[in-house]
């Protein structure tokens, strides 16, 4: 599965894209949960701004507290959520991407899943209508709440990724998914293929592995099983992959550190650098093809060929770095 997490989208195309992040912190129901959910939301928002270079104007943190502690931008009451999404629907370009993250408690009663907000909750169906209004933009939503599983079926659509912390509405226990998802945003670890960018698929894979480890090390029965749906069929997968129906879409929903975007920008003005980057990309494609043939090859021959290609790639990296003046941070 890990081998299929590689995001094929070149950074050059990503650089021009506009991304909006809407993080909604729900009702905690007590100081401990309030602080925990706010802390997660804060971490995601700060990482989006500082690490991935998203402007404040497109990183929205909605919180229950009307006093809007920094870096909050609006309240997470129903009207605050609706206004924030409506503004994006009105102002953002059609090729913008929107990621919505819900952190808090959820409920599932009478066949209806809700995300708990201060004041009236929003049901899965209502969230669906709000997201529909963002079309034709590419949208991803992460519901990290308990009992969030039914959101998958309710929100599934084409060009949309839906991630929920639980597989079903019956998984009602408090979840830890949100905390690890925030860690994925804030650190480098979730860049599993080390290409300098983090796709939603990678964030999902890293977070679910950490959630499993959390329960294992605590000696607890795992009461949350996250799923991801990005083929629009309304059925989430626990093990999505870039070469499976679920996983392909989210593998190209990528967050790139601001520093890494400097390289494609430099290539636009330097034809030699542009050639080196093309050659580098070709080598990566050859490696990907070789890996696809691994099962049919003699292991020693495979390893030898892989090593040769990787050495070529390593040397090409040095050439790229040399051309850039040894600036480091290749990608």
């Amino acid at each position: 599965m890990l081998g299929a997490l590689i995001a094929p989208a070149p950074f050059a195309t990503l650089a021009a894209q506009e991304t909006h992040l809407v993080t909604v912190v729900g009702l905690g129901g007590g100081p401990e949960y309030d602080a925990r959910f706010f802390g997660w939301g804060e971490r995601i928002t700060v990482a989006a701004r500082e690490r991935f270079g998203l402007p404040e104007s497109s990183t929205h943190l909605l919180v229950p507290d009307a006093e809007l502690p920094a870096p909050a931008t609006a309240t997470s009451r129903r009207d605050g959520v609706e206004a924030t999404l409506a503004a994006i629907a009105t102002d953002a370009p059609a090729d913008a991407e929107v990621l919505v993250v819900l952190l808090g408690h959820g409920t599932f009663r009478n066949d209806e899943a809700r995300f708990n907000l201060p004041g009236p909750d929003l049901t899965a169906r209502e969230w669906s209508l709000l997201l529909d209004a963002l079309a034709p933009r590419r949208v991803a939503i992460v519901n990290a709440a308990s009992a969030s599983g039914p959101f998958v079926q309710a929100l599934a659509a084409s060009n949309r990724t839906v991630i929920t912390a639980t597989k079903t509405g019956r998984q009602r226990n408090e979840t830890v998914f949100g905390g690890y998802f925030a860690d994925a945003f804030a650190g480098d670890a979730a860049d599993l293929d080390k290409d300098g960018a983090m796709s939603l698929l990678e964030a999902f894979a890293w977070t679910t592995a950490e959630v499993a480890r959390h329960y294992d090390e605590q000696g607890l029965l795992q009461t949350e099983n996250a799923v991801l749906d990005d083929d629009g069929d309304g059925v989430g997968s626990e093990t999505p992959s870039a070469d499976e129906p679920d996983g392909a879409g989210s593998s190209t929903f990528v967050f790139v550190p601001a520093a890494a975007l400097e390289l494609p920008e430099a290539a636009a003005a330097d034809s030699v650098l542009a050639r080196l980057l093309r050659e580098q990309a070709e080598l990566e494609t050859r490696i990907a093809r070789l890996r696809a043939r691994r099962g049919e090859m003699d292991p020693e021959a495979y390893e030898a060929e892989l090593e040769e290609l990787l050495v070529e790639l390593a040397l090409k990296n040095r050439e790229v770095e040399g051309r850039r003046g040894g600036g480091g941070g290749g990608r």
């Binding site: 599993l192 293929d193 990907a288 050495v311 390593a314 040397l315 990296n317």
Partner: peptide
């Protein structure tokens, strides 16, 4: 094999 673009690992290989 998992992360072919892993710069530090490529340098280590060299």
């Amino acid at each position: 094999e998992i992360a072919p673009s892993f710069d530090a690992a490529l340098e280590l290989l060299l």
